[in-house]
């Protein structure tokens, strides 16, 4: 069953358009005035009040901030996938996204490095985190 993708709204258009047209690189919003980064997109910089920003690629490691494993799904399409993992991942300082995980996280996974990929399926773009580091080691 196809899972829903994110709707392409005006408020997040730059975020998703850049992902869809590029190589799947995650982007962060960088303030022109103070240089600090943020995610999700906000109209104004919450740190300095600046209204101008650029989109920059995210580089460096992402970190799993918190997670849950959902046992009771909100809809039949998700029930077919349950249990499934959901997490908040910090991809750069001040930049966080909500993702699905490709494994069922446990308490010991808090703070661990993860790799966030942009998947584009029938339902639209989605963000998925995996334990890239571990797999690289085990292979």
């Amino acid at each position: 069953m196809t899972l829903p993708g994110a709707p392409r709204s005006t408020e997040a258009a730059e975020f998703w358009n850049a992902l869809g047209g590029g190589d799947g690189t995650l982007l962060r919003q960088e303030c022109v005035q103070c240089g600090r980064s943020r995610l999700p997109r906000t109209a104004m910089c919450p740190y300095c009040g600046g209204w101008e920003s650029h989109w920059r690629p995210v580089t460096g490691p992402a970190r799993l901030v918190t997670f849950t494993v959902i046992r009771r799904a909100p809809s039949p399409e998700w029930a077919a996938h349950a249990p499934y993992g959901v997490a908040i991942v910090e991809v750069a300082p001040g930049c966080r996204v909500l993702v699905n995980t490709d494994w069922l996280p446990e308490h010991a996974d808090l703070g661990r490095p993860v790799v966030v990929a942009v998947e584009t399926g029938d339902g639209g773009p989605r963000l998925v985190a995996s334990r890239g580091g571990d797999e690289a080691v085990s292979q």
Binding site: P4, S9, P74
Partner: peptide, 22 residues
């Protein structure tokens, strides 16, 4: 959030669960 959260199958208890986990 319809854009950043709902597409990932997040429920209200799941969001509170993530705060509880932290």
């Amino acid at each position: 959030h319809y854009q950043y959260e709902a597409p990932y199958g997040v429920t209200t208890p799941a969001a509170f669960a993530m705060m509880a986990r932290l």
